[in-house]
Design a binder for these strands. Structure first.
Length: 522
RNA sequence: GCCCCCGUAGCUCAACGGAUAGAGUUCUGGUCUUCGGAACCAGCGGUGCGGGUUCGAAUCCUGCCGGGGGCACCA
């Protein structure tokens, strides 16, 4: 049981023994100031309101009934906060556990649920742009977090290698009047592909784009998908037709103006959706429903999280209704990422340097390391429009948050090397000597890591991870400035070496979650 | 017209309805006879505007103003 659960349980018990039976949800918050302790609970204010009592009195009464062996002190503060001070002994013990767990530090109990995170899934009609590339770091890290938290996780890329955009790509290769895509890469493909049938040419081009452009870029960004799933397969297998049959059988389709519609409004959508166009073509939505049926039934995922660009906002209800029509309610979640704008010289850059497309991930990779790109992308919340200032990112390449974090790791590595400890440090000796404010703070910061993983696994707020990485690095740098590790006092030296080794594990595990390297030296 | 996201320090961004709104960067000043100065410390500086709900609002509701994205028999 972790400390937050412990606090929650103790408060829950105190509620009962104090006679508050209502349906109160207890939220354990991390205190913002050390004088407020380590964690706090504001339940007394809620009770005070509901029952018309003085919150301070409620808090005092609860405090009398709160018991827990890891609490050094429980304090009530106006207007009714109950603040928990966790005992140092608890931290000493836990910091020792960090060393034992090593790379497993931060993991939770294995869970039986299987989760798929599908991300990027850009059409294979051109290079990866910064817009559809944003999902790369985000989805990758979200998947890493869920895995760390104990789920079985699959990272998937859905290849839209079927339908109209492939035909358009073919026409573009052939440079006929139906051409839609243009750019240097299209010219190059045109020289390579001799096929004259537009659809076949499009198929060939899509394959080349996927293999030589997209996969390469994805790899450069340090992303590894477990699965590259081809849309055409669903058509070949008849999975798409099965969906049509099912929808018809459920009475969820109708004809209008020569097209066949899915009555998604019956399942909460704001409008119905076409599944078969009047020209007989099946729509993208239909394939996507089939794909999700496949995910839930063949692959038996308990949950699917799709990372989409915000421009697909309008498509969410249709697919959710589709999944529901297939009998999979509440298993599909969609995270929308807001747009990415690249700024240079204070102006928006619209086009790639060479390709005649929107700014590509490769353009960024030309100037910046994947570590820097990933960190910059990850720092921002999904809801924020991401303004990527190329000049700033380049200019700051030496004063970058990612270097700040990596530098902490390199410094620790250097200390450990200088300490001439050949074997891995397995425990914190003389932990009780770690009493400096900086030492305690570093310890607490290290031990936040499992909480960061847990919180992120439940709310998908991935930007919390780089924020935490900076906090952790900051705590270390502050500690480093005040506390000399390789002290003449060998007992203190051992204690600090243990702490530093634990900090290294926390930093490394955090960077690993983000898919960013942890250099031994820089 | 309807729907979604955003508006926080000069700039890029945080803040789980909570306590004195935090980081990085910029600018000003300071800290090295010790483990890596890519560091540490101090200072300047902020919730777009108006109502409301609440013990408590950057956060929830509402009206403006501004930016982005949707509202297809495109994906």
């Amino acid at each position: 049981m972790n400390i937050r659960e412990e606090i929650k349980n103790s408060v829950s018990k105190a509620l009962k023994s104090s006679g508050y039976e209502g349906d109160f949800s207890i939220k354990v918050l991390r205190s913002q100031k050390s004088s407020f302790g380590d964690y706090s609970v504001s339940i007394a204010m809620e009770i005070g309101k509901k029952e018309g009592k003085n919150p301070m009195e409620v808090a005092e009464k609860l405090k009398e009934n709160i018991k827990g062996k890891h609490f050094e002190k429980v304090e009530v503060l106006a207007p009714g906060f109950i603040n928990f001070f966790v005992s140092k002994e608890y931290y000493f013990k836990e910091i020792g556990e960090v060393l034992k767990k090593g790379s497993k530090f931060g993991e939770s109990k294995r869970k039986k649920e299987r989760i798929q995170v599908e991300f990027v899934s850009a059409n294979p009609t051109g290079p990866l742009t910064v817009g559809n590339g944003r999902g790369g770091p985000f989805g990758d890290v979200l998947a890493n977090v869920l895995k760390k938290y104990g789920y079985k996780v699959n990272k998937a890329y859905y290849i839209n290698d079927f339908g109209k955009q492939i035909l358009s790509l073919g026409h573009s290769i052939l440079k006929d009047e139906e051409a839609k895509y243009a750019g240097e890469y299209i010219d190059a493909l045109g020289r390579k592909i001799k096929e004259k049938d537009p659809y076949k040419a499009g198929k060939m081009a899509a394959k080349i784009i996927l293999e030589t452009m997209i996969k390469k870029t994805v790899k450069k960004l340090n992303i590894r998908f477990d699965e590259w799933f081809s849309e055409s397969l669903l058509y070949k297998n008849g999975d798409v037709d099965k969906v049509i049959d099912l929808l018809r059988k459920e009475g969820l389709t109708y004809e209008q103006e020569g097209a066949e519609w899915f009555m998604s409004t019956a399942l909460g959508d704001e409008r119905d959706r076409v599944i078969i166009k009047s020209d007989g073509e099946k729509t993208y939505l239909l394939g996507d429903i089939a794909y999700h049926k496949y995910k839930f039934e063949k692959k038996r995922y308990d949950k699917v999280i799709n990372i989409w660009g915000a421009d697909h906002f309008g498509d969410v209800p249709g697919l959710v209704a589709g999944a529901e029509a297939m009998g999979h309610m509440g298993k599909l979640e969609v995270v929308l990422l807001q747009f990415v704008t690249v700024l240079k010289d204070g102006k928006t850059v619209r086009m790639s340097k060479r390709l005649g497309t929107a700014v590509t991930m490769d353009d960024l990779l030309d100037d910046l390391s994947p570590d820097v790109i990933r960190f910059f992308f990850l720092m921002k919340s999904a809801d924020t429009h991401l303004n990527f200032d190329l000049d700033l990112a380049k200019e700051q390449s030496e004063k970058n948050p990612v270097f700040y974090v990596q530098y902490a790791h390199a410094r620790i590595s250097s200390i450990l090397k200088n300490s001439k400890k050949i074997l891995r440090i397995k425990k914190v000796k003389n932990a009780e000597l770690l009493t400096d404010k900086r030492e305690i703070d570093l310890m607490k910061q290290i031990l936040r890591f499992p909480e960061i993983v847990e919180d992120t696994a439940s709310d998908y707020e991935v930007h919390r991870i780089p924020q935490y990485a900076m906090d952790l690095a900051n705590s270390f740098h502050k500690f480093y400035a005040e506390c000399h590790v390789l002290d003449k006092d060998m007992k203190l030296r051992e204690a600090r070496l243990g702490l530093v080794a634990a900090a290294k594990i926390a930093l490394k595990n955090t960077l690993e979650l983000m898919g960013i390297s942890s250099p031994e030296k820089m």
